[in-house]
Design a protein around this nucleic acid. Structure first.
Length: 479
RNA sequence: CGGGGCGUAGCGCAGUCUGGUUAGCGCACCUGCUUUGGGAGCAGGGGGUCGAAGGUUCGAAUCCUUUCGCCCCGACCA
């Protein structure tokens, strides 16, 4: 048992923070709400980035970089946008030792500056679509920060596209939602429910927002990524116009979509246990750690280390990358070395000691189940990929099962309140209420409308208003 | 911004109510020896302007005033 991690059942928030500390993922920065992402945490982010970036490239997007500072006036060009973001913007008022003529906003998101640039770049229908993504930091001054889930500065990617037709922009919005769903499910092993946001939960300035909602192990919902159909709102605000095939001027249709370092928080809260982090193999920067174990220094040098390096090399070949590391912390005793990698969530630990060598095997220990296997040395490289894959599938299934088991169907508000007051979790129901109705429900129960799941075109009777034609909606308490 | 906690060694804390030796304990760290397949044992050692600033007093970690910060719970949000 870990002695530096509060049990999850005792204090969920503290458990979450303890894991981040024990796994050395992040640390508090001197400025409130800001965090330092430590090397172990950052390598997870790099892995997430790689999988998303590949998926973006496969769907025809290219990367670019837009500046951190945005003229204050840009934000004000889109009424809903400024209303939504102004309260949480950090503003630069001085530079070069003098007050600035116009304050500069540290970007909370980049729709405005990108809209400005797109209007310069777009003249003809031939200039469309523009399919650009950027990896960047953004700043939103949060009242109540939490490591990875909500920090004042965070890292993310934001895709920004412009299209000549509404249909094409809507297709792009849903395509990228599906890209998110796929990577989050297949790589991060998160049980994603893709859906449409209700009006009250929309991105400021969007006609429509789509989301990937996922359940954490405390049964609360986390918004893991969003894709927005911006209509012509930003095109009109920033004058993104093109001449169509008939020679007429039209406003472009734009989209934007983002996912952030919050995903690391999602991985922690979905998969970890009381011993620390558990990483799904496909996202783990180190998938297997090899620990040579012996008290005999000469034996370590002459026999164990060479065998470990050999094994590491054949494992890397089998896994198609540098995914294996050899632990050389010989100043620590074996127990300390086990816990070190256990807490950091490495999916497989391979112990290579004198006893193993004598038997011609290696001991392989699964992080997710603790299961131990003795495998003949010659077969390790061949068998490990399948074991990792099994871990991946098993973790995803476990997470999906939790979601399924904690999703309740209700028909009335009384039932709704009963469920939220006891079991919690997700509530799946029919809803046709207004934004004010959502506020009332939140005041009463703490739950908010998370999304209206896609692919569910049936309609029913609203549990709150009694109206017919209501849409299937998921409610939950959310991060 | 409201409510509740808390600031004493890297981390976790005792001491504060009732002012009084040189401010303690556990873990971690350093050295040595013994150990070593799931978080070792013994011995020795280093490390503190007690969050900050004022005040009361012969004397303040302790009492008074002000202030800064952090954590948790809410409202706002990826």
């Amino acid at each position: 048992m870990a002695r530096n991690i509060t049990p999850r059942s005792e204090d969920y928030s503290q458990w979450y923070l303890d894991i981040i500390k024990a796994a050395e993922l992040a640390d508090y920065a001197p400025v409130r709400g800001c965090m330092v992402i430590r090397p172990t945490g950052y390598s997870i982010w790099e892995s997430i980035q790689k999988h998303f970036d590949d998926a973006f490239k496969e769907t025809g997007h290219v990367n670019a970089y837009f500046p951190l500072l945005i003229p204050n006036s840009f934000l004000e060009k889109e009424a809903e946008h400024v209303e939504g973001f102004a309260p949480e913007c950090a503003v630069v008022t001085h530079a070069g030792g003098e007050p600035l003529e116009e304050p500069l906003v540290v970007r909370p998101t980049s729709e405005t500056v990108i809209g400005h640039m797109y209007s310069k770049w777009v003249q003809s229908w031939r200039d469309l679509p523009i399919l650009i993504n950027q990896w960047a930091n953004v700043m939103r001054w949060e009242k109540r920060p939490r490591l990875f889930l909500r920090t004042s500065e965070f890292l993310w990617q934001e895709g920004h596209t412009a299209h000549s037709t509404k249909e094409e922009a809507m297709e792009e919005t849903l395509r990228m939602l599906e890209v998110y769903r796929t990577v989050m499910t297949d790589i991060l092993a998160l049980p994603i429910i893709p859906g449409e946001k209700t009006e009250g939960e929309r991105f400021p300035g969007a006609d429509n927002t789509y989301t990937c909602e996922t359940m954490m192990s405390d049964k609360k919902a986390l918004q893991a990524g969003t894709s927005h159909f911006l209509g012509q709102n930003f095109a009109k605000a920033f004058d993104i116009k093109f001449q169509n095939r008939d020679g007429e001027l039209e406003y472009a249709w734009t989209t934007s979509w983002g996912a952030s370092t919050r995903l690391i928080g999602a991985i922690i809260m979905t998969h970890s246990d009381d011993d620390g982090l558990i990483l799904p193999p496909r996202v783990a920067p180190v998938k297997t750690i090899i620990l040579p174990i012996s008290t005999d220094e000469a034996k370590i040098e002459d026999v164990l280390l060479p065998r470990a390096r050999e094994l590491s090399s054949s494992l890397n070949t089998a896994l198609g990358g540098r995914f294996t590391a050899v632990d050389t912390q010989f100043h620590l005793r074996p127990g300390d070395r086990f816990f070190n990698h256990l807490q950091k969530g490495v999916p497989l630990r391979i112990e290579l000691g004198e006893k193993d060598l004598a038997g011609g095997t290696a001991r392989i220990v699964r992080r997710d189940t603790g299961e131990r296997l003795d495998i003949p040395l010659g077969q390790v490289a061949e068998k490990v990929p399948a074991i990792l894959e099994e871990i991946q599938q098993s973790m995803l299934k476990k997470a999906f099962d939790l979601t399924r088991e904690n999703t309740h169907r209700v028909k009335s508000y009384d039932e709704f309140k009963e469920v939220m007051g006891t079991d919690g979790g997700f509530i799946e129901t029919w809803f046709a209420g207004s934004t004010d109705d959502e506020k009332k429900i939140k005041e009463d129960t703490g739950a908010t409308a998370r999304c209206m799941p896609l692919g569910d075109e049936e309609s029913g009777t609203c549990f709150f208003t009694g109206r017919a034609g209501a849409r299937k909606t998921i409610f939950a308490k959310a991060y």
